[in-house]
Design a protein around this nucleic acid. Sequence first.
DNA 1: CCTGCCCCTAAGCGCTTGCTCACCGGCAGG
DNA 2: CCTGCCGGTGAGCAAGCGCTTAGGGGCAGG
Lengths: 213, 213
Amino acid sequence: MSTAQETDGDDLPWGEVTPDAARRLLIAAVEAFAERGYHATTTRDIAGRAGMSPAALYIHYKTKEELLHRISTMGHAKALDILETAADGPGDAADRLAAAVRDFVVWHAGHHTTARVVQYELDALGAEHRAEVVLLRRRCDAAVRRILSDGVRAGEFEVPDVSGTTLAVLSLCIDVARWFNVAGRWTPDQVGEMYADLVLRMVGAQGGASEPR
Amino acid sequence: MSTAQETDGDDLPWGEVTPDAARRLLIAAVEAFAERGYHATTTRDIAGRAGMSPAALYIHYKTKEELLHRISTMGHAKALDILETAADGPGDAADRLAAAVRDFVVWHAGHHTTARVVQYELDALGAEHRAEVVLLRRRCDAAVRRILSDGVRAGEFEVPDVSGTTLAVLSLCIDVARWFNVAGRWTPDQVGEMYADLVLRMVGAQGGASEPR
DNA sequence: CCTGCCCCTAAGCGCTTGCTCACCGGCAGG
DNA sequence: CCTGCCGGTGAGCAAGCGCTTAGGGGCAGG
């Protein structure tokens, strides 16, 4: 239905990060990584944003890459949860696809700083940490593909290439994290609604006003 | 030593880069930036890929940022040319939209290393160079918006929000540069064809089988 | 032959990076 | 009171960064 969009950290798992100073460092890292990119961000910058000395970072995290790994893992877990919840939800394929796109997009827009790090700083992870995250991404892909396959099987969708369309739908939603808030004229909910409609049209399920004409 | 990368550089304006060593450096920079990102790429790496010493770079380019600026400007010019050519081309709005999406996507897929730099390393540019490039991007937006507006005015498209749909179409196409060749099961032309179809559905113009005229 | 010019290299400068280490205030337990 | 420990700091190290500078090889013109 509706997810909160006003600020970061409301229903975000950041609240679960246990020592208070560690959480402040993590939030500072998310902001810095989203703003300037992982490689352009210095550990001094992260510590400074959290109001601490550069050395304090290494009390709570072993390396700068561990910070990115934590952010990426938690973010991907949240994204996967949104998609799988929608895929396993009630309603026909069109309802579930609309819910998946809407919630996924609302999260990417509402938490676009986190999402930017999650979606665009993947290559900065070390080899084994990246492999870990890639598994989560494959499950995201599988969740969307499942909805599309169901819709095709039920005759609700008309999709020539399920794999390609899965990729396109995810790509469309993910890229919201890149451009959102640059313009600043839509709320996350509005973008989610619009994108759900666009995607339903893409799969031939007619999201808008017109179906049989 | 045959440093040529066969997929890139065929009809690309790289051929116009005048001193031969300067062109080799530029191509090396494109590969390195696309692979590891601007900030993670060292000038020593670029020079090494071009088969030269680190200092040779500074004979042809004043700074590392100038390399990115040259790449970004030439890439955006090419992208803009594709979109404006399609927007001013023959046919009705659906034809022109399909051509724009197809050619734009084919370029992003076929030259995905260049496109990745062009689309995702924008923030690494200096302030005034970025402002320059943002103007080109606005003209890309305008070209697509023009096609959509024409289609709506002519009754070909059914689009509730032209601005939002323009953004979504461009976003969808641009993101091809991020994921292409990771999977490796489609050719650029196949992706272009599929995406043109998807976009026509998005605007309610029925790219697929249905909708009699 | 020499001269001047163009490309290029070896060496290195000044600075920033990720990260470490010796040390220290505050505070609970005895 | 002292003791031990947790969470923090100031200073700094080795390595790597973007970039500079002095000089060298090849080559055309005289």
